[in-house]
Nucleic acid binder design. Structure first.
Length: 402
DNA sequence: TCTTGCGGGCGCG
DNA sequence: CGCGCCCGCAAGA
């Protein structure tokens, strides 16, 4: 069945150790390993007690990014940056979108902005929003530590998130800008039209399915709880399984994605809603499996989360109540929300080469080769690059506004 | 308007 | 001392 969280952790550690001293260090060590042989691909969703060593060239690592909503915490140590998880903003009514998804908004990082955010209402049902705080580390929020040392950036996570994943930063931004645009244009009619267009696009495009595939782990990204739990299993297993061998390059990538979380929160009682399988994880499921391999690709993972949202398959929701744009509502009309699910922002492949191993030149390709080998990535289209572009296109189509 | 980092300061164990 | 956390400041987007 599922692997327990512990197992997952173990796997990670295990694999990590396989690559060398990687796990032998602690972020607080006076001296960190210098003979790093393996650099990890940037992990968007680090969870559990994991450690990663990124290239100091990795943009995401440089920015200490995480798709979890992490806020800076003062640990009175200028050499080690510490951040703690803010959890996830959920609907107080525990509503679901038409396609069965739950609302998992990204908590604003800034205290003031967060308070303001909580005063707004659920983009789906207009109900009150509630901040589900993270208590995955002994009752306290999960903490992440970043330390730059020479040509590497050491990352260490303490605690396992006991809540669903919030929207990624990109998703949140996309949602916001979309809403803004929509409201700006015109509240009623045009918007619907636009929506329709979007829907059609989405629906029409084969991409829908494709996207997810391409994206790196879709499941992880967007899928909120429901899916995750569900997928997780399926997806993650494949993931691990398929990419297990992942070579040498950055290994980490695949793992966290699917691995820990599902478990992680499935365990949490509160959230625990079973993943109601209600929804078809179709999109994600399949793709996911493939993706895993893809995971390694840095770019995807780190950058393109947005898409994943789409995942479900289609655009899901149609708006219900909140169309009106009250201030709060406008913030996120359902539509907007759904739209956010679509394509991701255009981020080609910013990452430079996180892979020291592979030399900068061919990062992607190289990676993909090894990785994807396992399955088909969805057919030809599958290559990551292709995918990216694809995504971009989608994005543009969908988000003309942007 | 936010995000991200920094750092002073407080309370607790 | 370590840790969690509040607060304000500043830079940048």
């Amino acid at each position: 069945m599922l692997k327990g969280a512990d197992d997952v952790v173990m796997e990670q550690e295990d694999s990590a150790s396989r690559h060398g001293e990687i796990t032998s260090w602690d972020i607080n060590d006076i001296k960190l390993p210098q003979d790093v042989r393996q650099i990890d691909w940037f992990q968007e969703w680090p969870d559990s007690y994991v450690k990663h060593i990124y290239s100091s060239e990795d943009k995401n690592a440089q920015r200490h990014h995480s798709s979890w909503a992490m806020r800076n915490t003062n640990n009175h140590n200028s050499r080690i940056l510490k951040k703690s998880c803010l959890g996830v903003v959920v609907c107080g009514n525990d509503c679901s979108t038409l396609d069965g998804r739950k609302i998992y908004l990204r908590p604003a990082i800034c205290d003031k902005a967060r308070q303001k955010q909580q005063r707004k209402c659920c983009p789906n049902c207009n109900g009150p929003l509630r901040l589900l705080s993270c208590r995955g580390h002994g009752g306290y929020p999960v903490t992440n530590f970043w330390r730059h040392e020479g040509q590497f950036i050491f990352f260490q996570s303490k605690g396992a998130h006991d809540h669903p994943r919030p929207e990624t930063k990109l998703e949140a931004e996309a949602r916001r800008s979309i809403q803004k645009a929509q409201t700006a244009f015109s509240p009623s009619s045009p918007r619907s039209k636009r929506t329709r267009e979007i829907e059609s696009l989405t629906g029409a495009m084969p991409t829908r399915e494709a996207l997810p595939l391409l994206l790196s782990k879709p499941d992880a990204y967007m899928l909120p709880a429901n899916f995750r739990g569900h997928l997780s299993k399926s997806s993650r297993e494949p993931t691990l399984g398929s990419c297990p061998g992942q070579p040498p390059y950055p290994r980490a990538a695949g793992e966290d994605g699917g691995s820990g979380e599902a478990l992680t929160w499935s365990r949490s009682p509160a959230l625990g809603r079973t993943p109601s399988a209600g929804r078809p994880c179709s999109g994600p499921a399949v793709p996911t499996a493939n993706l895993p391999c893809a995971a390694p690709s840095p770019q995807h993972r780190s950058t393109q989360h947005v898409l994943p949202v789409t995942k479900g398959g289609h655009d899901p929701f149609r708006p219900k109540a909140c169309l009106l744009g009250d201030e709060s509502c406008e913030e996120k009309s359902p539509q907007a929300y759904s739209s956010s699910c679509l394509p991701p922002p255009p981020y080609p492949a910013p990452q430079e080469g996180p892979c020291p191993t592979a030399s900068g030149a061919h990062h992607h390709h190289q990676l993909s080769a090894p990785l994807r080998g396992s399955e088909g990535d969805g057919g030809e289209g599958g290559r990551r690059m292709g995918l990216n572009y694809c995504n971009n296109d989608m994005f543009f189509n969908l988000y003309p506004l942007r």
